[in-house]
């Protein structure tokens, strides 16, 4: 009886998981088909894979440049974000005042402002400072839009470090720097890692700002994909190849770090 139940559950779980994963799987398969195979009716599950689409994508639009832009902007915005968010989160967690909660909520509310709402002013300012289509410009934007979430995540991690441990360090003669270096950092490293991971993923996938503020020079992979979305003509295989190249790095990365990532996203409310 229990055995049957286990098999039913196993079957159901696998079925649902495969269903949910199917679109990605299909995208991956299509990327290795010819254009004709890609739109065949009925769909082909078995075919001789080809690498042509990938070669074509690279030669037509220099995938590597976009990938480099994505990588640089995500990593840079993550580092910059940590640099700004960590001290703030530390301050909020360990020098809590009556206004701390309000401050946190206010930070989050800036994240709720739809990007479109401020696109034009940002565009104008960027034009003024010649930040349009630059990696610096995108890095700044990514940092700002991730900052509230980063502060929140780090805050909830830091808050879980018992106060008394810091007090013990203080009694042991630790300065603020020692405290950070020898206690907070080692104890909060998991939180810092989760936060960094999430920020990387969000920046990598950010589509709105990169579409509107960058193009040929600083464009990220999201920009590249958009250029394949022309409504005329069905180039599914190439589109899939480009898409696969855009998402594969971050998906694989995400698989390895899923535990850390999810833990962080619970904001410490879920243990």
């Amino acid at each position: 009886m229990d055995k049957t139940l286990l098999w039913v559950r196993t079957g159901a779980a696998w079925l649902v998981a495969l269903l949910i994963f199917f679109p990605i799987l299909w995208l991956g398969m299509t990327a290795f088909k010819t254009e004709l195979q890609a739109i065949s009716v009925p769909p082909k599950f078995f075919f001789t894979p080809t690498l042509e689409n990938f070669i074509e994508v690279q030669s037509r639009s220099d995938y590597l440049l976009y990938a480099k832009n994505s990588l640089i902007t995500s990593v840079a915005s993550t580092l910059l974000g940590l640099l700004i968010a960590a001290p703030a989160a530390y301050s909020m967690a360990f020098f809590q005042t009556r206004r701390t909660k309000d401050l946190l909520v206010w930070m989050l509310s800036t994240k709720m402002m739809p990007a479109v709402g401020v696109l034009i002013p940002v565009y104008v300012v960027y034009q003024q400072f010649q930040l349009l289509d630059t990696r610096l410009g995108l890095t700044i934007i990514f940092t700002m839009s991730n900052l509230p979430i980063m502060v929140w995540m780090l805050y909830s991690y830091f808050k879980d470090i018992p106060r008394e441990i810091l007090e013990a360090a203080r009694m042991d003669g630790a300065t603020l720097y020692d405290e950070f270096r020898h206690v907070i950092l080692p104890l909060g490293i998991g939180g810092l890692a989760s936060t960094a991971l999430l920020c990387l993923v969000l920046s990598w996938n950010e589509s709105f700002w990169s579409l509107n503020l960058s193009s040929a020079k600083a464009g990220t992979l999201a920009t590249l994909i958009a250029s394949y979305s022309s409504p005329e003509g069905l180039f599914w295989a190439k589109l899939s190849a480009a898409s696969l190249m855009a998402i594969a790095p971050i998906i694989v990365f995400g698989w390895f770090c899923q535990k850390q990532l999810v833990q962080g996203l619970t904001f410490g409310a879920v243990k």
């Binding site: 018992p162 008394e164 441990i165 007090e167 013990a168 360090a169 009694m171 042991d172 206690v183």
Partner: peptide
């Protein structure tokens, strides 16, 4: 505290984990 040269044993021990 760091300049007072006192040592404290906390109720929760507060060891560095």
């Amino acid at each position: 505290s760091s300049k007072r040269d006192l040592a404290m044993v906390f109720q929760s021990y507060a060891l560095y984990p």
